[in-house]
Simulated assay, not measured.
Amino acid sequence: MHYVKAKSILSKNNGMNLYRGCTHGCIYCDSRSNVYNMQHDFEDIEVKENSLDLLKKALQKKKEKCMIGTGSMTDPYIPLESELEYIRKTLKLIHRYGHGFTCITKSDLVLKDLDLLKKINDESKVVIQMTLTCMDDEISRLIEPNVCPTSRRIEVLEILKQENIPTVVWLCPILPYITDTKENISSIIDACIKADVKGIICFGMGMTLRDGNREYYYKKLEENFPGIKEVYEKEFGDSYSISSPNNKELMKVFYQKTNEHKIMNKPDEIFEYLHDYPKKRKSKQTTLF
């Protein structure tokens, strides 16, 4: 871990990353790519030490309420969050200034902030986005070794459902020749149906590989899935976007199940939902005696 001073914290679309780098160890992580020009080891977490002050000033200046998002580059609920509590302090600011909140995570640490998430959701809007890639916990531990397995993430979705906090699932990446089976995709979607998720984001059954993350991914394939690396090199070469040979069949399953259960399945529609802030803040219920 190391600290840096940031010049700003919110993007033009009201997204932020309080941390840079990650210790989840997901073998497919695109954030390792050289294109992001990270000047430190990926596991050496960069902490924006002045991010909370910057966020407070930014929220004070906003003329209109909006959804504040995080997690696009680094999962906000990395283990370090338990110690620093930057996200928890962020949630307190978001609640104080009346904005909404959404994040992308694959960690059950999100539940430690359930009290604040409920407060924000009661008055405006919260959407928790959870990444699910593999229903087999043993394989999940190989491809996402330092984070809770899929079964636990599904438990988190169920808890959030009970607390009336909306959820969205990222069904990606899907690793060719590893997780691209009908059984895996169907099982994940069935779990989403049970958890009453609002939408499932899927850009096709495949993944991205570019300089930086490709080398790390191939190294981990050699360690955990002998023989698969050679298949990738022969079939995909240096392609950035690679698709499962089962893509057509699996996407058919995806659309059939999501349409049948009225789960949003178009990325643009889901992103619009995530960014949409309620025009009228929810009024707190009162009981007359």
Rank of each mutant, 00 (worst) to 15 (best):
V110W: 08
C202Y: 00
S140A: 15
T208W: 01
I128H: 01
E46V: 11
L114M: 12
F289V: 15
F271H: 13
D53N: 06
I263V: 09
T286K: 11
L59E: 02
N213C: 14
I78K: 01
V168A: 06
L54I: 15
S241N: 09
I178L: 12
D75F: 00
N14H: 10
S31A: 12
L175F: 01
F225N: 06
D268Q: 15
S33L: 09
C202S: 14
M130L: 15
K61F: 06
Y255E: 04
A6W: 03
D136R: 14
G71D: 07
I94M: 01
V35A: 13
W170V: 06
L10I: 11
K282W: 06
F203E: 11
C172I: 02
E233R: 07
M16P: 02
N121W: 14
I165S: 00
Y277A: 05
E46K: 03
P79R: 02
G204P: 05
E64Q: 12
E163L: 03
T74A: 12
Y217A: 02
E158A: 14
L142M: 12
L171G: 05
G237V: 08
S187F: 04
G206Q: 02
A195T: 11
T258P: 03
N265V: 11
H261R: 15
K257Y: 14
Y86G: 05
D75K: 00
P176G: 06
I9L: 09
K65T: 06
E83K: 14
T90V: 02
N17S: 07
L109N: 06
K280L: 09
E83G: 05
M1I: 12
K161L: 10
G15P: 03
E158Y: 09
L54W: 13
Q60I: 05
H261N: 14
G21K: 01
Y36R: 07
C66G: 08
L10F: 13
C26M: 01
D122K: 12
V110L: 11
D136Q: 15
I45L: 09
V156M: 06
K106L: 08
K161G: 04
K5H: 08
P76W: 08
P173N: 04
Y36I: 08
K7R: 11
C26K: 02
T179V: 14
F203Y: 09
K262W: 11
T208F: 02
T287N: 04
F236N: 06
L114E: 12
I188S: 00
E64I: 08
K280S: 07
N259R: 07
V126K: 13
L116D: 01
F225A: 13
C103T: 10
K5I: 08
I193D: 08
Q256E: 15
F225C: 10
Y177S: 02
G212R: 12
M38Y: 07
S11D: 10
K282F: 05
I242F: 01
D30G: 08
Y216W: 15
I263E: 00
E269C: 09
Q129G: 04
I174R: 02
K280R: 03
L142T: 03
Q256K: 12
K266G: 03
L157M: 10
I174H: 00
H261D: 01
E215K: 04
K112Q: 11
T287W: 06
G71E: 04
K57N: 15
Y217L: 14
E43L: 13
K56W: 12
E249A: 15
N13E: 07
N50V: 10
I188Q: 02
K280P: 04
D122V: 10
T74S: 12
N34S: 10
